[in-house]
């Protein structure tokens, strides 16, 4: 591994389109690879768990690819770990979307339906309210700290951790909806940084920086 070019393993378990996340990380200077190779995942400076679609289907696919243990081990290893969308949801203990499919249990808590009221899914850009403004993942997402941080969401459920101190950011969508989480080395977003234009790319760049320093 070249210094300054961290190897980042983007877990490839055969669902949907994972290229955007990998390409965006590469553009931010990482040696980002879509992979299902446990050896590569164990060697990586950082690990990304993406996901789109249904919780149960993603958990099944992750297990089917034999990557549930690799994901769990990576999150427990202390190395930088990033979960995105359903990848974030799978870090929780369980989801109301599919009670038959337990999650990875990295973040104690449940994934719950967005409270009734607004259109479901939330499929739009929304403004983050930062609960942990000093988190290195939120560094310089916008030029002026007073500027709102708009990011892109597609989701019907959101994570509700047992310890609400884990919530790193929220958005208003009918009610307050949890948008990002921080637990030790694990950071996870309900939104899609790889689809959130400049602030999203900067967040992924921050992840690359954290991996470089780790």
């Amino acid at each position: 591994m070249t210094t300054g070019t961290p190897l980042i393993a983007v877990l490839d378990y055969g669902i949907g389109n994972l290229h955007s996340a990998q390409k965006a990380l590469a553009r931010q200077g990482a040696d980002a690879r879509l992979t299902a190779d446990p050896g590569l995942i164990a060697d990586a400076a950082g690990v990304v768990l993406p996901g789109v679609g249904a919780f149960g289907a993603c958990m099944d696919a992750l297990r089917g690819a034999g990557l549930d243990e690799a994901a769990h081990a990576a999150a427990a290893s202390g190395r930088p770990f990033l979960g995105i969308c359903v990848g974030m949801q799978m870090l929780f203990t369980a989801s109301e979307e599919d009670s038959a499919a337990p999650g990875l249990g990295v973040i104690p808590g449940a994934v719950q339906w967005i409270p009734a009221g607004p259109k479901i899914p939330q499929m739009q850009w929304n403004r983050l309210a930062l609960e942990h403004p000093d988190d290195p993942m939120f560094e310089r997402l916008v030029d002026d700290p007073a500027d709102p941080i708009w990011v892109y969401f597609v989701h019907s459920l959101h994570g509700v951790p047992d310890d609400d101190g884990v919530v790193a950011a929220t958005v208003e969508y009918g009610s307050t909806v949890n948008a990002a989480f921080r637990l030790h080395n694990v950071f996870a977003t309900q939104f899609h940084p790889e689809k959130s234009s400049r602030p999203g790319l900067r967040l992924l760049g921050n992840f690359v920086d954290v991996c470089t320093r780790a």
Partner: peptide, 8 residues
């Protein structure tokens, strides 16, 4: 486009 444009 997917490789270069980071909006939906």
């Amino acid at each position: 486009v997917a490789d270069h444009v980071y909006i939906p």
